[in-house]
């Protein structure tokens, strides 16, 4: 890992958005308690959602939220990549395409007509994908929205010259460490066993099954998981709907066979 900053310099950071709800950038603004400490060590070069004076790159780190859905966005993300030493895909949309990638499974033309009637012809709509369909991503910060503490952890790692280490296990680990009762074992469709950890099992914490918003962890055993769900008499439609909810365009889920 290269040291991104010298002893005295601040980390030059950009926080930018493509197609999404803007919720992950909001999480950055919600970092209030540590925001002052943050600006001690980083310089927000470009953050259109929060400040009026913004500059173009180069950046040490760019956090980019949102999915790529138009030709213009492809150009934008390619430019951002060129200008950034370290690119973070901020949130599930940037990692996988997000909720909106469900449209990739239908006819885009059809969808365009449904939403914009006949005047939709000027709308440039491509399949919604994560950033990495077009550029290299250095760190995937999953979650819809992301977990604030992970933003701080990643910045801290970069500041001290360490490669930020993603988690390679499922939500179940965090769920068990917090001693929550297991919802899957009660027969509910909880995506915990195949979903990447990092949210501290936010949903099971309030007795709501995990919806899989963080996407699959790298060694998720999908075949066995789906078999288990079927044994619990959960319908194939419900299973497919869950996998299609947040990260349907994740490579492991894209061509998923449930039956």
């Amino acid at each position: 890992m290269i040291f991104l900053v010298s002893d005295k310099g601040k980390l030059k950071v950009a926080i930018l958005g493509l197609t999404c709800c803007g919720g992950c950038q909001l999480e950055i603004l919600n970092l209030e308690p540590v925001l002052l400490d943050l600006v001690e060590v980083i310089e927000l070069v470009n953050f259109p959602e929060a400040q009026s004076e913004n500059k173009d790159g180069p950046y040490d780190v760019a956090f980019v939220e949102g999915s790529v859905t138009t030709r213009e966005e492809i150009e934008r993300i390619k430019n951002i990549r060129k200008e950034s030493k370290f690119l973070v895909a901020l949130g599930t949309c940037a990692c996988y395409g997000g909720v909106q990638s469900i449209r990739n499974f239908g006819d885009v033309e059809e969808a365009r007509k449904q939403v914009y009637d006949d005047d939709g012809s000027h709308i440039d709509a491509l399949p919604a994908t994560g950033l990495d369909e077009h550029v290299n991503v250095d760190y995937y910060m999953r979650g819809c929205p992301v977990d604030r503490s992970e933003i701080v952890d990643v910045l801290t790692s970069l500041l001290i010259g360490k490669t930020p280490e993603p988690k390679h296990y499922s939500v179940c680990v965090e769920c068990k460490l917090a001693e929550y009762a297991c919802l899957l074992n009660e027969g509910k469709l909880c995506m915990g066993p195949v979903t990447n950890a990092g949210c501290k099992a936010r949903c099971p914490a309030v007795s709501v099954p995990c919806d899989g918003c963080r996407g699959p962890y790298d060694q998720a055993n999908l075949e066995s998981f789906i078999e288990i769900l079927k044994e619990k008499k959960i319908s194939v439609e419900d299973i497919l709907r869950k996998f299609r909810m947040y990260t349907s365009w994740a490579p492991q889920y894209r061509n998923l066979k449930v039956i």
Partner: peptide, 9 residues
């Protein structure tokens, strides 16, 4: 190994 989800539970 085929059945186990690797959840660590």
């Amino acid at each position: 190994g085929e059945k186990c989800l690797g959840c660590g539970t």
